[in-house]
Amino acid sequence: MHEMGVVSSILTACTKTAEREGATRINEIRVKVGELSEIVDEAMYFAFDSLAPGTLAEGAKLIIDHVPARSKCVECGVSFGHGRFDITCPECGSFFCELVQGRELDIECIDVDLPEEAVAGDRVEEP
């Protein structure tokens, strides 16, 4: 499995974003994983626990949002959800269907802590 590589890409992108924001730590990382991608949650958590220590994301929570698979029938245009094995139109029975979602592998957002002064400074600027 390639979860190690996937998690190290997630960490690189998230720590870069956090550094740009001047954050002191990352509390939470939220990712979107399509049901049809070859990713196993347990392997993701395992990789995350091994790779996060020593980065801004040490101790952070990894949240995986699953995106169900959906396809659109090329013949009759109906859009429908399905599992991994049978991509058949429930309306007309056609096998000619195009996947519209289910292969996502995206980082959505992170939750970070900013340094005390920055937070205090923000409050002072508020009207």
Partner: peptide, 14 residues
């Protein structure tokens, strides 16, 4: 604080 990242995980590969 929430910060939007919104990019493919395999960004570099893609």
């Amino acid at each position: 604080m929430k910060v939007d990242v919104s990019k493919p995980i395999l960004d570099r590969n893609e």
